[in-house]
Write a protein that binds this DNA or RNA. Structure first.
Lengths: 121, 121
DNA sequence: CCGTATCCGATCCGATACTG
DNA sequence: CAGTATCGGATCGGATACGG
């Protein structure tokens, strides 16, 4: 992804930052600890390795995510949220609540039960 | 847009809710009052009427926005955020701060000055 | 002022195969 | 385990024209 420099408002950047099918989910999965690529791949249902890598790289370009190569073999890379990434995470957590709200309203709570996500009403 | 019912996690819904080039901006522009279509069109640089309508309708499907036809002539329709829309707005405001942060870091503050958006550092 | 329809290029993303 | 490359269908969004 080519980084632009002709943005006309801050939310235009935000769109570039979080656009794509998987970005919010990826960020959310990094909420509590740094993770390896394969950990992420396992925890996100339906994502392909290609998309995972691609979107992680875009998140890195915007400074939300960083990575660090652990020494030794087999190869191991830790991905983690930067301070900026953690700020976006706050927003994502709020939006997730709205998503849950929507699922409750539309009787889609099976998945919530299944994943052990709590909700009320 | 066809509403799905096979979501596998709340953030998948969130993605459907806010995806598209203009959704976050539209929601943000409705933050303080209900607005007419033409007001929105004027306040959002670069948007076409088609996209504005389309994305407003999607927001309505997800229950973030509602509209009300004002009586009288010429026709006038008020669009406004629902309670759910206002919750998403909270998230968008946080993300906007991150966008501003990014602009400051990349010396893109001209637009901020121009729009009278305040920032520090 | 409000809303819908069509055409068409640009972009996204899934599948798949391959390298270190 | 980590990462790159390509191909093709689906979707997105801009331009434009038209109707209530």
């Amino acid at each position: 992804m080519k980084i632009r420099n002709d943005y006309t408002c801050p939310l235009e950047i935000v769109h570039d930052i979080i656009k794509g099918k998987w970005k919010t989910i990826i960020i959310f999965q990094m909420r509590s600890a740094s993770v390896s690529l394969s950990d992420l791949e396992k925890s996100i249902t339906g994502i392909s390795q290609k998309m995972l890598l691609q979107q992680l790289n875009e998140l890195r370009q915007f400074g939300l995510v960083d990575k660090e190569n652990a020494p030794g073999y087999p190869l191991h890379v830790d991905y983690y949220l930067t301070e900026r990434g953690q700020r976006i995470l706050k927003a994502i957590e709020i939006m997730q609540e709205v998503g849950i709200d929507y699922m409750v309203e539309h009787q889609l709570t099976d998945i919530l039960d299944q994943k052990g996500i709590c909700y009320r009403k």
